[in-house]
Structure formats: structure tokens, C-alpha cells
Amino acid sequence: MSAPPVLRDVFHALRNTWGEEDHGHLFENGPGPLSRLDVLIYRPTGASPMTSFATIGMAVEPMPATPGPGGGGRVELQFARRGGLDQGDEYTIAEQLANIAAYPWITGSQLNWGHTVALGRDFPTFPGCGSVFLSGPLSPEGWDYIPAGDDAVRILNVVPITEAERARARLLPPVEFAQELIAQTDVYTGRADR
């Protein structure tokens, strides 16, 4: 069975911008509409020192529309980690992203820019970061949306944060928190890497 058009549009946007993925992991039989979720991995190159991850599958249907900003909509996740990773770390990060992707259908609550999600454990390769902040574009080149037919797929950038950073995120507007965090730390490395 072929992928729905919205997922093909996301795949082609990634391929046209980032090129062919270096690796990926398939997660099947998720909750609700997530019968299949791919997590694509793009390893560092001379042009980019990042290992980047992107989900494809979360946007198969709009998220549950719960009260608050955003009201559902289609989304996909992206994550970047400075430097290369071994395949074990790549897998555990992909698995964590798949778990975050399932969140709206497990809880019945949407995810949106500015939300924080407690993980119950540290984000892989980010010791001390037991939560994530979901952000819009982290750089001028970053995506906010990917056009998909008559719709748009919002991109949620996953940023691991410490408990102190999560407490700070609750006090500030999301854009202000993201700007402060980027000014104070390299969000693409584990806090112990610095």
C-alpha cells in the first residue's frame, strides 16, 4: 500500500532539502493512526556537523484537537545532535522520537510549539535532560511548515532540556525562552559535552 499523499509530500521535501537519508528506523503498530512511523537519519557531512533526525508518519492524520493554541493539525518532529553518533545511540534517539510522536494519540492532547513534555527518563545522549521543549525553527534556515497538498505540516523541533530549563520555560513566552536557551547553551549537545 502506498503512503498517503501528505506523507509523500513530507518525504519529498526532506529529500529535496537534505538529500537521501543515511539510515532510518521503522516503528509499526503505534497508537491510533500511527500504524507506521519512519525516523530518518542524516549523518554529519562537510556542510553540516549535525546528526539530524526527521519523523515521517505522524502527519498521517491531524492530531486530536484539544483546547489551546494550535487546535490539532498535522505535525512531524525534527531533532539535531552535534557530531556523529554510534548506531546504538541513533536507534535510542529514533525510539524516543517515536514515543514522542505517539503522545497525542496516547493522551488525546495535541503537541505544539512551546509545549514541554516530561519523558520519565533522560533523552538519549543528553544526560540530565528529562524533558523536551518543542520549538519552531531554531535557525533562519529552519522550517516552520512543509506544504503538503492543500494542507501544511508543522515542524516541531525537539530540544532536550533540564528540569531547571523546564521550570524557566514555564515562566517565559515560548519564543523568548527559546531565544534565551539558544543564547545560553548549545542546544545541539548534551549538557555534559560542554
Rank of each mutant, 00 (worst) to 15 (best):
V6P: 06
V153C: 07
A152V: 14
P31W: 00
P174W: 05
A47P: 12
G32A: 03
D9L: 03
L119Q: 04
D89S: 12
D193E: 09
A80R: 14
H12R: 12
R121Y: 06
I106R: 12
L172H: 10
L34F: 06
L181F: 13
I100Q: 01
P147T: 04
G136D: 05
A152M: 14
R166Y: 01
Y103L: 14
C129I: 05
A178Q: 15
P147Y: 02
T66G: 15
L181T: 06
F123H: 08
T17E: 11
V187A: 06
F133K: 04
Q110M: 11
I106N: 10
P127H: 03
A152C: 03
G30L: 01
S139V: 12
G84M: 11
G108W: 01
E20N: 15
P127A: 07
D144R: 12
P160C: 06
D22T: 12
H115L: 11
S48E: 01
D22N: 13
Q87S: 13
P4G: 08
L134A: 01
G84T: 13
F79M: 12
V10H: 09
R43Q: 03
P173R: 14
P173I: 09
T162A: 01
P33T: 04
H115V: 00
T45L: 05
V75D: 11
C129P: 02
Q78C: 12
D151E: 14
R194Y: 08
E21M: 14
T66L: 04
S52F: 12
N99Q: 15
L14W: 11
M1L: 14
F126Q: 06
E61N: 05
L138M: 13
G149K: 01
P124Y: 04
A3E: 14
A102C: 03
I100C: 00
L7D: 05
W105E: 03
A54V: 07
C129A: 14
M58T: 07
R168W: 08
Y42P: 05
H23I: 05
L171S: 11
Q96R: 11
T125Y: 03
G130A: 11
M50P: 10
M1Q: 13
I182V: 15
P5I: 04
R166N: 10
V153L: 07
W143Y: 07
W113F: 07
F177T: 03
Y91L: 13
P127E: 02
T162M: 01
P67C: 08
Y91G: 02
V10L: 08
T51I: 02
P69S: 14
I93K: 02
P33Q: 08
V153A: 09
H115P: 09
P62N: 01
Y91N: 08
A59T: 04
R74A: 02
L181R: 06
V153E: 07
V187L: 14
E180Q: 15
